[in-house]
Amino acid sequence: MDINEFITHFAEQFEETELSEFKPETKFKELDEYCSLIALKLIAMVDEEYDITIKGNDIRNSNTIEDLFNIVKNKE
């Protein structure tokens, strides 16, 4: 699993945020566009793209995109 590919999929769940905002160290919950809808879209994205189930707790326990990536990777 590649973090750059993960970031691309991650960014696709947002509609207005500039692509340049998405980096491994980005604290995604601080992005203006982040809301409960995006949280659920991320869970759906991980399921569809990686066939891995993550829970709301996994999102809540992640601060950066890399944190979430590592959680997903550890479930592979």
Partner: peptide, 10 residues
């Protein structure tokens, strides 16, 4: 706070 902007809202 734990559940603001989380899947639980939906």
């Amino acid at each position: 706070d734990e559940y603001i902007n989380s899947d639980v809202t939906i």
